[in-house]
Amino acid sequence: MNAQTHIKEAGSKTREMSYAEAIRDAMAIALERDPTVVLMGEDIGTYGGAFQVTGDLVDRFGKDRVMDTPISELGGAGVAVGAALTGLKPIYEFQFSDFAALAMEQIVNQAAKLRYMLGGEAAVPVVFRMPSGSGTGAAAQHSQSFEAWFGHVPGLKVVQPSTPAEAKGMLLAALEDPDPVIVFEHKLLYKMKGEVPEGYYTTPIGKAAVVRVGKDVTIVASAIMVHRALEAASKLAAEGIEAEVIDLRTVRPLDRETIIASVKKTGKLLCVYEGVRTLGVGAEISALVAESEAFDYLDAPIQRLGGAEAPIPYNPDLERAAVPQSPDIESVARKLAKGEV
């Protein structure tokens, strides 16, 4: 993928890493470069994190910089906010993004608003890492996709890297950012491998990436959905339908330009996201296109594929049915391209 195009200060060499390893690499680089960086979270030390993302960092950087917190999400997130407000750069890991619900107060009422409420005199450069999404059989309280929730809050930035290279670059960008950033890491991507540039670089927040060029239909997807969309696109290509796939990467702020330019070219838009369909990220993308000059270029109604209007169920077949899968994307994109919608 073209993470390369957004790389700043990147070493020329790359190395194959998993998504989880790439995030760990970013954290190790940050801990080395900046003594104010601290990692906080439940079982991120000896255990290595619920998804083994922090791994051996505690052995390398010690318990003072890789801090196990008690099971206290509201307090832990709040301590990170207070530390960020006063000179540290904490990366707080939630074991599952679902548990951020316990910390909404500190994220939404405090972190997101402090700079504004204090008239620009204060800053909260905190990063919240949130393993997210379904597909692991963990059911309703461990599988949610909260991008739209946090995307609704001015003051927050919300990113969803979809590849190892993006995961590393966006985490480093989040740390450079002077404001709070939420990083959603899709659990099904942790083991995914990819080429990752060595050393320090950032992948900019607020820039989507065109990961497949096409002329017939635009598919805007995020996180794991990028991969499902690419799979669908390659099937469609065999039928002569060329889908353009955009990796959204950032939910807030949205990259209007990239989306609008693509829709002007293809005249057709399909939004694919894992969060609940209603009032989700796709609604915002649809609206921004409908409100823009791209509206005149639309040849078909905008389509959305999102999560079912239900909690994520446990039964594996129900769970699969609850979020968009590659064949769903293929089928809607095909209909759009053929003018059957």
Partner: peptide, 30 residues
């Protein structure tokens, strides 16, 4: 994950509960 399960396959291990015997639910949230 069966329909015949206490939660009709919706809940799984972390949510198994027999409400009729006074169990108000296992919980995925500590």
């Amino acid at each position: 994950g069966k329909e015949t399960g206490y939660c009709h396959g919706r809940g799984g291990s972390m949510h198994i509960a027999d409400v009729k015997t006074g169990n108000l639910g296992a919980n995925g949230i500590v």
